[in-house]
């Protein structure tokens, strides 16, 4: 009984807080999607930050883990269509790598759905906003991550 109460309490806390979302957007698709959303002046929740990368190939799995350690509630990686990458199959490799990472995240209790890897859906502004809104809604329903134990380890580099 006591456990249930505390769970409910946590659940409530999670919904009160706006989730923090970090977006790694490739400069050639994801960022163009973000730019399209901006040009349309689509009102978006201000709970996300975009880090432009040259290609999603350069999104190290460590950087994603670091993001969770630094208090992000969700991470989105936005790349080009599979097959439409400027860097040949770099996004294929990234996709495989991040899919493995999602399995790992599930294993360590963060949950695989806190990392969203989208390819090709971000090229248009409305899709960017859709992805972001849906993901925010999804994450908002979750409990916030307990990062207290990571604070000392994450600063190692």
């Amino acid at each position: 009984m006591a456990v249930e109460v505390s769970n409910n309490h946590k659940q409530q806390k999670a919904t009160e807080r706006t989730p923090r979302i970090l977006v790694f957007a490739c400069k050639w698709c994801g960022l163009i999607g973000a730019d399209g959303a901006g040009r349309k002046r689509e009102p978006l929740p201000p709970n996300f930050r975009v880090i432009p990368v040259e290609c999603v190939g350069s999104v190290e799995p460590d950087a994603v883990i670091r993001a969770f350690a630094d208090g992000m509630d969700g991470v989105i990686v936005m790349g080009c269509h599979l097959g439409g990458c400027r860097f040949n199959d770099a996004n294929h490799a990234a996709f495989k790598r991040l899919e493995l990472l999602r399995a790992l995240l599930e294993g360590v209790g963060i949950g695989r759905d806190r990392l969203l890897v989208t390819f090709g859906t971000a090229h248009e502004g409305h899709q960017f906003t859709d992805v972001l809104r849906n993901f925010t809604n999804l994450i908002a329903k979750k409990e916030s991550l307990d990062t207290s134990w990571t604070s000392s380890r994450a600063r190692m580099i």
Binding site: E54, C55, G57, S58, V59, E60, P61, R86, A93, A94
Partner: peptide
């Protein structure tokens, strides 16, 4: 400069100097 190599490097020996691990982690 797609950065796939640095994502698979097990010990950070491979870097993209213009967007290295320190800069990326710093931004995160």
């Amino acid at each position: 400069a797609c950065g796939n190599c640095l994502s698979v490097c097990p010990n950070g020996s491979m870097q993209m100097p213009e967007m290295n691990t320190k800069a990326l982690y710093g931004m995160v």
